[in-house]
Design a protein around this nucleic acid. Structure first.
Lengths: 214, 214
DNA sequence: GATTAATTTAAACGGTCGTTTAAATCATAC
DNA sequence: GTATGATTTAAACGACCGTTTAAATTAATC
C-alpha cells in the first residue's frame, strides 16, 4: 500500500457512510473501521474531521462541474444562436445523473450525499455551493438567452426548481422504488435523464405567472 | 404552567433546532436549554429521543395533509370532470408553502425540517413518508385523471419531481437569497406558489419523452 | 545496512452524548 | 392542612466523540 492508498480508502469510506447515514451522524471511528485504517490516520492525512468532509466533496465536484461545462460548451458551439432549452438542461442534469450510478468511477454514493448537502449543519452547504459558482453563472446565463421572456427572479427560481427535481432520483434511491412498487427505478439512468429533460424544459419554457415582465 | 406547556415548549424548541442544525446534530441538552426545560423532562414527556423526533413530525403533518385533501376535495367538487392540473398542483403545494411561513401557527421552521427529512439517518424518512400514503394516492390519482397521456411510471416520476421542486423554496431559506443577492425571496410565499404552479403544471403536461405509451 | 523521513499504530485526553435514578417541588382534592 | 399524584429537578452513569501524543513500523536514500 503506497501513500495514496489509505488516503483514498478513507475518502471512499467517508463518502459511503456520509451518504448512508448523514455527515453529522457518521463518526471518524466508523470511517476508520470501514476503510479500514487507524483512527489517527484520518488526522494524519486530512488534519481534521471538517477537512475530511470538504475533501470528500472536492474530489467529485471538480470533475462533475467540468463535464457540465464541457457539454454546455459543445451545445453552444453547435447551435446557431442560443441552444435549445433541452440541450442546456441535459448538459446540467446528465453528468450528475450518470455520476450517481457510475460504479466504476466510484461516484455511486456521492450524488446521494450531494442531495443531503442542504440538510447538513453549519455553513457547509454555503461553502460547498461556492464550488458551483461558475457553473451557476454559466447555466443561468445560457438559460437566460434561451428564455428571454422570463424575469431574472423567475429564471433563477426555475433554476432552483430544476436542481430540486434532479435531486429526487439522486436522493430517493431507496424510498422511491419502495413507494412505487419498483415502477420508478432510479438506476434507469438514461431514461430518467430524458424524463427530467422533458419535464424541466417544459416547465422552464412556461409563461411566467404574472405575464413575465422582463 | 400547566402540563402541556413544557410539552409544547419542548416540541417547539426541538422543531426549531432540528430545522436549524439537523436532527442528528441536535442534542437533547440543547433542546432543553432552548425550551427552557430540564433535560430529564424530555424523557418524562416523550420517553426517548426518537419518540420526540416522531412527535415533532406528527404534530404538523396531520393538519398539513388534511388541508391538502380539503383543497383537492374542493377542486374536484367544483370541476366538471377532472380539475385542471394547476388546481391539483396548487392544492398540493400551497398548504406546505403557507405552513412554512406561518409564524402564527408556528410552522415556520417545520417545512425546512421536512426538506431535511430525506437526509436523515436510518428509517426515519420511510417511517414519516408513511404518513403521506393517503395524500400520495389521492394526488397521483387526480393527476392521472387530468394527464391521461402519461404512463404510470412517467406520472409517478413527475410527482416526485414536483416534490423536489417544492422543497427548494422550503429548504433553501438561507442559501437561496444569499446566492441571488436577495432577488429570490423564499418568504414571498404567494408569488412563489404561483411560480411553482406555473412551472410544475407545464412540466407535468409536457409530452412524455418516449411519446408516452399509456 | 545505517539513516532519515513517511506512515501507521495503540493509548489516552477531556468533553458531550442519551438515559436513569431518586429526591424535591408543584397542583389538586379531600 | 394534609395526603396523593403529577411534574420538575440535580446528579450521576457508562458510552462514544474528535483530537493529541509518542512510540512502532514501513519505505526510501545514501
Amino acid at each position: 500500500m503506497n501513500q495514496t492508498d489509505t488516503h483514498n480508502r478513507l475518502l471512499d469510506a467517508a463518502e459511503h457512510l456520509f451518504a448512508e447515514h448523514g455527515i453529522a451522524a457518521t463518526s471518524l471511528r466508523a470511517i476508520a473501521s470501514e476503510a479500514p485504517a487507524n483512527l489517527a490516520s484520518i488526522h494524519y492525512h486530512f488534519g481534521s474531521r471538517e477537512a475530511l468532509v470538504e475533501a470528500v466533496f472536492a474530489r467529485r465536484l471538480e470533475p462533475l462541474n467540468r463535464e457540465r461545462r464541457r457539454l454546455l460548451d459543445r451545445e453552444e458551439a453547435a447551435a446557431d444562436g442560443p441552444p435549445p432549452v433541452e440541450a442546456i438542461v441535459n448538459a446540467f442534469v446528465a453528468p450528475a445523473m450518470r455520476l450517481a450510478h457510475d460504479s466504476g468511477g466510484g461516484g455511486e454514493h456521492f450524488m446521494c450525499l450531494m442531495g443531503r448537502l442542504y440538510s447538513e449543519p453549519g455553513d457547509l452547504a454555503y461553502k460547498i455551493t461556492e464550488q458551483f459558482e461558475e457553473v451557476f453563472l454559466r447555466f443561468t446565463a445560457a438559460l437566460s438567452r434561451s428564455l428571454p421572456h422570463l424575469s431574472r427572479a423567475d429564471l433563477l427560481w426555475r433554476f432552483f426548481f430544476m436542481v430540486g427535481s434532479m435531486s429526487m432520483p439522486l436522493m430517493g434511491r431507496h424510498v422511491i422504488p419502495r413507494r412505487t412498487d419498483g415502477l420508478c427505478d432510479p438506476s434507469d439512468v438514461e431514461n430518467n435523464i430524458k424524463r427530467l429533460v422533458a419535464f424541466l424544459a417544459a416547465g422552464l419554457r412556461a409563461a411566467a405567472h404574472n405575464g413575465g415582465a422582463p
